[in-house]
Simulated assay, not measured.
Amino acid sequence: MTKKVVLSGNEAIARGFYEAGGEVYTAYPGSPTVEIMDKMKEYKEIYSEFSTNEKVALEIGIGATFGGVRSMVGMKHVGVNICMDPLMTFVQSPIDAGFLLVTGDDPGMASSQNEQDNRNPRQVCQHGNF
């Protein structure tokens, strides 16, 4: 018998990364992705840390991936601008391990200087948010 548990999106991201064999998670804190780190700390097999900024977090994840380790990096959507230079080089590089970049959007600009919403626009329109 399997046990069913209700998880938040951030809890599900952390759990999925753990179950997929992830070993390194770095992030720069920014709502709504901070809670991923809270849950990630529960998995002792995963090295996890907050970094000085988004670029440093990304470069740690890139280094881990080049070393053959599955890695994940998390940040707020506006943080992707901070790490764009290494990101654009990295996406053109061959790798042998998994890499995942998680960005937290801020629809409605609750805590950001601009709005980002990566959901499918048709789905958003159907719910009356557009």
Rank of each mutant, 00 (worst) to 15 (best):
E23N: 05
G68C: 11
R15D: 14
E11V: 03
T103W: 05
F50Q: 08
I60R: 01
F50Y: 15
K76Y: 00
D96Y: 09
R15P: 02
I46W: 06
P32F: 07
G63S: 10
G104T: 03
N120Q: 02
C83L: 14
R119G: 13
L58Y: 01
E11A: 15
E42C: 09
T89N: 13
E35W: 12
S31P: 08
Q123H: 11
K55P: 00
G79H: 05
E45T: 14
Y28K: 00
Q116A: 10
N53Y: 10
N81E: 01
V73T: 05
K76F: 02
D105F: 04
L58H: 00
S31K: 11
M37I: 14
Y43W: 11
T65Q: 01
P29R: 09
G30T: 12
M84N: 02
Q126C: 04
G63P: 05
K55T: 05
S51A: 15
G104S: 11
A97Q: 13
Y47I: 01
S71Y: 02
T33E: 13
G63M: 09
A27C: 08
M88E: 08
K55W: 00
F17C: 14
S71V: 08
M40G: 06
S31M: 12
M75N: 03
L58E: 03
M75H: 02
V69E: 03
P107I: 02
V91T: 07
G16H: 12
E49P: 01
P121S: 08
D106C: 07
H127D: 12
I46T: 11
A97N: 14
I62H: 01
N53F: 10
L100D: 04
G21T: 07
N53H: 13
P121W: 04
Y43Q: 11
P94R: 13
V80A: 07
P121F: 04
E35V: 11
N53E: 08
M109K: 11
Q113C: 12
S111L: 10
G61C: 07
A27R: 00
T26M: 09
D38L: 04
M72N: 13
G108M: 06
H77G: 02
G104V: 03
Q92P: 01
N118D: 03
P94H: 11
L100F: 03
V91G: 05
D96C: 08
L101R: 08
E59H: 00
G67A: 15
T89W: 06
I95D: 01
Q92F: 10
M75D: 02
P32S: 10
V80W: 01
G16D: 12
G104F: 02
A14D: 02
D38W: 05
C83H: 03
N81F: 07
M109H: 04
T26P: 13
G79S: 11
E42P: 02
Y43M: 12
S48W: 04
M40K: 04
K76C: 11
F50P: 05
M88P: 01
E11Y: 02
I95Y: 10
P32N: 11
E45K: 15
A110K: 09
P86N: 07
Q123I: 12
N120S: 00
Q113M: 12
T103R: 00
G67Q: 07
Y43R: 14
G68E: 04
M75P: 03
L100S: 07
H77V: 03
F66K: 13
